[in-house]
Design a protein around this nucleic acid. Structure first.
Lengths: 355, 355
DNA sequence: TGTGCTTGCACCATCGATTGTGCAACTTAG
DNA sequence: CTAAGTTGCACAATCGATGGTGCAAGCACA
């Protein structure tokens, strides 16, 4: 009787077995029973029964009635970047900690697809949405607003909802200073030796550009404008940019700033076609962290956005339910070359060797 | 009237506006209207109305009634490995293509948490589940069976449900042959120069070990057993294993096989503490692909599992609804050193530069 | 004109949980 | 011993979509 249930138990099954009404069972099992003045005795009996029958509430029914689904959404552009997959993992942990079931979806940097994707989340009446790196945050905002869906922007700000983002400007400045100083150890440097690749016309790229130029100005006193190649978030376009630079100058810049690990993959593709002489003495800064990237055969400084901090803050903002949108800056971390940071992997219970 | 709806439209709203009954509206909008002999005219009228009002069905209600939620689950151990995040991304695309909303969750390699996680998916009456790298696939299977939830194992086989996995043995053999041959170019090699790090007592590790030893036997004719360090899937334990080896031999093995990119991160940590002399002439094989890993300052051969192929096959198996579990092998790909493969990133619409 | 078939749709129970309301039974005060 | 308050619970409507069933109107045919 306890073992071989045919279907999943419902409150009605427990109601019959316990002699209490379904509403009583419901109240007991969702924790509102004190408010409903159910006796401790009745409650305990029902809780025991529920455990015996491995009762779990049908979330669809609960959601239908209460219009709270228990689902929390995260919209990413893509997954398979260290940055976004860390985001997914951290989001998962934090959402579950708060009692939500996380649903992570990708908009593939297509405004239309972003909106459709969010619509489909809305159809599941998700309770909240984190928008991380949408191409069109405000378009997504409108979909959310129509559905009265609480949401925050993460990492890339929108104007219509609150945003939690990295301090791109300061991070870029620190990163640029670090690579310039490192490169200067190999001999004097001119502004022309310091270049920037990647990014496009979004808020993050703009801020990083400002930080990049601010650092150059601090070191060199001045800085000309012709020191960037904006390639979008595309490995292949970035590879082309490196190739062009190489054709023009016979080498890569002594020292350069790469806008994200996606663009960094463009450098890899360039490297795949050339041998070491093309990049023997370069110093690279990348606004993103990837442990393998940190150990490439030249100094790589990286910036690790504080994903945990951003998401934590994002949940806080959602709890506050303010209506005036605001922007919160979170400081990222400068990671020195040849550094393998610990990560979520280290918290797993798997560390036990089987030998 | 079309613009400022207060709440999301329901079939009842459309029923009133169209003059048809709610059941007619429902039938029209879910495509069963021909079967119900609704006239084309009525159908068109309702479809138009639905578009005007941006109607989307409440999935909770639909799920409650029909007990099909439209959710498809993927259980991962963790996200932030290139392998699993690619898996998540590919799964997302394939699930959406098939009309499901993907829900990706992580069990963190803890059998208990895996089961709890799946229970929570069951509470949402998900329609199918992919189990990728569960620590206890058969435990998860039981939870699924109780809930009559169709499921397949991906990448790590179970005995109770069908599985789609990489051909670990052949992959490991090919990888081992590749690194040995490469290392032999630097001078003669003995079996003691060829080592294996990482993995534990799971099916994948066992098969890879067999392939590894098979390759050694092919080359050296024989092979002793003392050529492995099983460290679990933990970066820190792997780092320790490298450290121990280094303490004993004063260097790393000329040539070694790393069981996964997670273990590879252990090598990074080791490298972070040592300078180049500890690994000047090593040749490494890793059973996983990471583009940055491919460009480290020594030759790295990698195996890229065919994630797309595995998932595709997984969906096929679920469609078949066989009851006898079976195992399908998918061939992985050997990736030569210094190779930046194209990936999902390249399919994005983002390639346009803003300059 | 009556019988029987088809067309086109409406009615209504149902999925499982939530929640406002009602009301016995019991307790306490006067 | 009665009125007022408290305790402990049951009842029933409801969320939105689905699908079995029933039935009127229209038509063909004898």
């Amino acid at each position: 009787m306890t073992e071989k249930e045919q279907r999943k138990a419902t409150i009605y099954d427990l109601s019959v077995k316990s002699g209490a009404s379904a509403s009583t069972v419901s109240a007991v099992l969702n924790g509102t029973w004190r408010k409903r003045r159910i006796s401790e005795e009745t409650a305990n009996k029902i809780i025991l029964l529920a455990q015996e029958h491995k009762y779990t509430a049908n979330q669809q029914a609960r959601a239908l009635r209460s219009s709270r689904s228990g689902l929390a959404g995260l919209l990413l552009p893509i997954y398979d970047t260290r940055f976004f997959s860390s985001m997914a993992q951290t989001f998962e942990a934090q959402a579950r900690k708060r009692g939500f079931l996380p649903v992570v979806v990708a908009g593939r940097r297509d405004p239309e697809e972003e909106r459709r994707t969010v619509e489909s989340l809305v159809a599941y009446s998700i309770d909240l949405l984190f928008i991380a790196g949408a191409t069109d945050p405000d378009g997504v905002h409108k979909v959310c607003a129509r559905a009265r869906l609480p949401h925050v922007n993460i990492d890339l700000p929108g104007t219509l909802a609150s945003s939690v983002i990295s301090d791109n400007r300061q991070g870029a400045r620190a990163l640029t200073l670090a690579i310039i100083r490192h490169a200067q150890q190999g001999g004097p440097l001119t502004p022309d030796d310091v270049y920037m690749f990647g990014g496009r016309d979004d808020h993050a790229s703009r801020e990083r550009t400002i930080g990049f130029h601010a650092a150059k100005a601090e070191i060199f006193g001045t800085c000309r404008g012709d020191d960037m190649e904006s390639t979008g978030y595309s490995p292949s376009m970035t590879a082309l940019a490196f190739e062009r630079f190489y054709q023009r100058h016979g080498r890569l810049p002594r020292c350069f700033f790469i806008n994200s690990s996606i663009n960094f993959e463009g450098l890899l593709r360039f490297m795949g076609k050339h041998d070491g002489e093309a990049f023997g003495d370069i110093v690279v800064g990348c606004f993103d962290y990837d442990p393998f990237g940190s150990f490439l055969p030249f100094p790589v400084y990286m910036i690790r956005p504080d994903i945990e901090g951003m998401l934590e803050k994002g949940f806080e903002l959602l709890d506050l339910e303010e209506d005036a949108p605001r922007i919160v800056l979170i400081e990222p971390q400068l990671v020195l070359p040849r550094t393998a940071l610990e990560g979520p992997l280290d918290e797993l219970k798997d560390s036990v060797t089987s030998l």
